[in-house]
Structure formats: structure tokens, C-alpha cells
Design a protein around this nucleic acid. Sequence first.
DNA 1: GTTAGCATGTAAGGAGTTACATGATTTT
DNA 2: AAAATCATGTAACTCCTTACATGCTAAC
Lengths: 197, 197
Amino acid sequence: MAKTDVLSLAILGMLAEQPLHGYQIRKRLSGELGPFRALSYGSLYPCLKRMVASGYIAADDSNSTDVTRPGGSKRSRIAYQLTDAGTDRLARELASSGASSWDDEAFDVRFSLFGKTDSETRLRILEGRRTRLAERLEDVAEGLARQRDRLDAYTAELQRHGLERVEREVEWLDKLIEDERSATRGTDHHTASAGDK
Amino acid sequence: MAKTDVLSLAILGMLAEQPLHGYQIRKRLSGELGPFRALSYGSLYPCLKRMVASGYIAADDSNSTDVTRPGGSKRSRIAYQLTDAGTDRLARELASSGASSWDDEAFDVRFSLFGKTDSETRLRILEGRRTRLAERLEDVAEGLARQRDRLDAYTAELQRHGLERVEREVEWLDKLIEDERSATRGTDHHTASAGDK
DNA sequence: GTTAGCATGTAAGGAGTTACATGATTTT
DNA sequence: AAAATCATGTAACTCCTTACATGCTAAC
């Protein structure tokens, strides 16, 4: 288990704020995470089903308050909400930078949940992501050096642009890391910081 | 058919320069396209197989020049090269901005083949890509406006950063488009052009 | 002589998409 | 009353990765 697929984590985080039904989850997910992620229903509903089966969320199919029809089959709108197990699961997930939060997608989801994450973990994730990008940078630079001559102008430009993009993301991370550190110094530092490690 | 999967296009383009064997193709592919694409063998070899079956490439399993062994089974190193059909296919693919070249991945591959693409097609692809990104920009801006209040600081920052990234890519494309246009005016325009700039 | 890297492949499976199929509710 | 949009779901398929399985060749 523990193989937290990214989607279910995002859903857990979303349901922590309020119960939602599938259709709403999809819209928010699409909006919340950058210009990415158009997530299809064919992906979402089976995931919700699995999560119900695992006991992390409960389907509240109350067609409810208005039982005019004998068959009672209005059927639309199934609201999902976190169970206790789901709340636990989310808390555990949020506390550890567990199953690789460094991939592009996983990082975005983790980052969008930073509001519910403690500052130590935030820092760990930001630094992990930074390390990962720095490695990529090295790989590319190395690759470039090895085959420099064989590259036509367009391929070289593509490389340059890709490199630039990653460099900018590293700068972004550096800024965030710095902010995080100064915020920590200011506020919730509980153990004295004297020292070594 | 016609459903040009990206990988096979990249391979066609690569083999147009020289015959290569699978292992080499993979290394180049990994290097050539930005910091992306680590492409596994489990993906590559079946694709090569399909392409052989379709007649676009030929497998030259010559263990050849050195037939000391009676069984002749050295087996390593299968060089692939374009067939006539493959050359045709590549030419057709390169001439049309066919099956959506606007996705992130497809665009990168198409761009890396710009050296073999005529300038009209180059322009069409660059502009198509630009349009696609501008649309995304609109979608995000709209989404942002609609839910502005419900966003915590981190999610908002993620959005902002995503937006910035796309904006930069649009700028990059604008620069390329401009270059492409002025190059066209300068050189391969057969109606004269005494240039200013 | 053993490790590291070159070289080819297959099988199982994950994660998602498209297309389909259905029906309720709101807006025009 | 028609059209748009809300709402849920399934089945088939695509594309890719991981893990496995094999063997050659160069370097240390």
C-alpha cells in the first residue's frame, strides 16, 4: 500500500475543507493546479470508488430531504466526505514527504496543500524538489557538452530554452525556501536553534 | 492510421540522418529533447518493431563483416534505417502540421525537426502552439477570477507561477516567430527584397 | 576475473484518455 | 420545447514504466 497515488491525495486534501461531489471535485482540481490537469471522469469516478472501498471517504447519497417520489430514485449528486480513517491518512501523508513528492505532478499537489502542512515538512519538500531539479540541470549540461557539435540550431535552441525554464524554477524555489526560513525564524520555532547537527 | 504517435516521428527524424541501433536512439532521444524524456526500452523496442512491421524502417541485422562463428549468432547491434516508405512518411509528416503538434510533447519533437521543415510549416506550427498557449492563459485567468476568494496563499502562488511560466513560453514563441518572419523576408523569398530591418 | 556499460527484448501492470451511455436541472 | 450544463458511470484502448531475462564486450 502506501503507494499514494497523486490524485487520491489531491482529493483527500480537497475534501478536508468540505464535502463535495465528483463533478465539483473535477472542476476545482482543473482550476486549482496551474494551467494543467483536465482530469477526465473516466479517471475520477473509479478513483472515488476505490477510496470509498478503502474506507477513506464516505459517499453520502442522500436524496434525502425530498422524498416525493415513491421510487425515491433521484440519483444525482453524491456528496463525498472524509471518514476518520481518511482524516488520519491525510494527516500522515501531510507529515511525511513520503512517496516521492519531487515529480512535477506530485510536487504541485503537495504544494497546493502547503496550507495544511507544517513548516518543517514544507521546507523538506521544497529542498527535495530543488535538489531534484539541480540534478536534472547537471544531466542536461553534461549531455549538451557531450554532443554539442552534432546539434543543429533548432535542437540547440530547444535545449537552451528547456534549461532556462528549469533554472527559473530553481530560482523560484530558492525564493520560497528563503521565505519559509525567515518565517520560521520569526514565529513558531520551538527548539532553540543553537548549534550543530 | 495517420495517428502519428510522437515517438515514431522522433525516430523517423533521427534515422533520416543516419542508421542507428536502438540503444543509440534512446540515448540521443534522452539528450536531444530538453531535460525530459527518459524513455524506457520497454517502450522503444516494441515501437521499433511496429515500425518495421509497417515498413517504415528496416532492421539491418548484419553480423556481417566477421563470420568466424559457424552459427553466426552474434546477435548484438541491430541497425535500423529508413526505407523509401519511411522517407515518404517523414516527408509527409514534416510538411503538414498534421495530427496536433500543439501538445507539449508533440511540439518539442516537431520543433527538434525544424531543420528538416520548410519555413511555412515552421511558422504554422509556431503560431498554432502560440494560439494554444494563449487559450490556456485565458482559461486560467478566468478560473482565477471565478474562485479568487477561496484560494489560500500557497495555491494562489502556484497559480501565479504557472501563469508566469506560460507567459514566458509565449514570449519565447513570439521571438521565434519574429525571427522566422524576418529570415523569410531576407533569404528564400524569390521575389526580390532589398532589405531594411 | 569481475565489474561496468553496451545491447536487446518480454510480461505485467499503472494511470490516464476517449467514447459511450444515461438521466436531471437550469436557462433561453 | 430545446439547448446547455450538471451529474454519474463503464469499457476499450493507449502509452508508458518496472521488473525481469539474457548475453556480449571493454576496462580495471
